[in-house]
Simulated scan of single mutants.
Amino acid sequence: MTLAKPIDQHKREGTYRPDRHSDRLALSPSDLTEPDWSTVIGDGPGADKVKADASDIWSRIVPALSAATRITDAQREVVVSFCTAQARMWEAERFISRDGLLVVGANNVLVKNPATTVVNTYAGILRAARVELGLSPSAAARITVTALSEDDGMDDVWD
């Protein structure tokens, strides 16, 4: 899967063609606003730790994403989903560490800890979000980022 070049990169390289490149959605760059994690995650047992984890993940990845991909506030929901999924996965991992991979189920029979199912579910969500955001090494290698030259002003990038 090859990621398409941004339109402004085509313009800088002289490869822009209106018949091929004008149909793309172009969003103006803007700062991502961190959500109120209480409204995203809610309250309940362990919620404060999950909120703190999600906020920590947000503060670590958003500056890099903003600089590298020009992600906008209009696209922030995938970042919110990523942060929430990672925080929930860590919560499930804490349950597994506390209770073990096997727990006593009905009839005193050992069964797989239900938290392992949660980990597997969130692993899939995270895998997809990492590709979308360019956070895995292979996805990051496919993203083309070009620095603006001194002649390129941000005023005309979105024209």
Rank of each mutant, 00 (worst) to 15 (best):
M1Q: 10
L3V: 13
L3R: 14
A4Y: 09
D8Q: 07
Q9N: 04
R12M: 14
R12D: 02
Y16Q: 09
P18Y: 12
D19W: 11
R20P: 04
S30W: 05
T33G: 04
D36Y: 06
S38R: 13
T39R: 10
V40F: 04
G42K: 05
G42I: 02
G44L: 00
P45F: 04
G46M: 07
V50S: 04
V50N: 01
A54R: 05
W58R: 06
S59V: 00
V62G: 06
A64R: 14
L65S: 05
I71P: 01
R76L: 04
E77A: 10
V78E: 01
C83L: 06
T84L: 04
R88D: 03
E93N: 10
F95S: 13
S97F: 10
G100Y: 11
L101D: 14
G105D: 02
N108G: 00
V111P: 01
N113D: 00
N120M: 13
Y122M: 15
A123V: 07
I125V: 15
L126F: 07
L126D: 06
A128I: 10
A129L: 07
R130G: 11
E132L: 13
S136L: 03
P137Q: 09
R142T: 14
I143E: 12
T146Y: 07
S149Q: 12
D151G: 15
G153P: 08
